[in-house]
Amino acid sequence: MIPLFFLLPPPAFDVPHYGPAVPLQPYLVLSLVLFGIGIYGAITRRNLITILMSLELMLNGVNLMLVAFSRQWGLSLMRQPFSSEGFQSLVPVPVGQVFVIFSLTIAVAEAGIGLAMVYYIFKSINSVEADRLNLFKW
């Protein structure tokens, strides 16, 4: 019995020099689904640590979208290094992946700072629930 997803057409989209591949749009939809799940968790959860986890999910959705666009557009016409010919040729330029590296750095710093703030809040009000953060309430 053939499973259902085999009924999908074989990928006709050819990423140049990479062979047949899944086109860009399913990756975009998947990253948006991750982002939406992160939004839901960040709004509804009570535990501050879980809210931070939902933020990590949202960051991962954005990173996935950046990498997908990098595969789609990460080719540039420039002079091939170490070649004596004057021809310009297509070389891969992973700008989106470099952006993902910076985004990862910021995410790690954000996780450290956020969890330190969660611990500080826990030492202050003896709770990590977001509903109890009412110190500024009149």
């Binding site: 591949a21 990756y27 998947l30 986890m53």
Partner: peptide
């Protein structure tokens, strides 16, 4: 069909695990 299999397998795993997080 292998790219679709990787995509749906790992994508489904990711989405299910994200739902578990939330």
């Amino acid at each position: 069909y292998l790219p679709w299999i990787w995509f749906y397998g790992f994508g489904g795993l990711t989405v299910l695990a994200a739902l578990g997080v939330v």
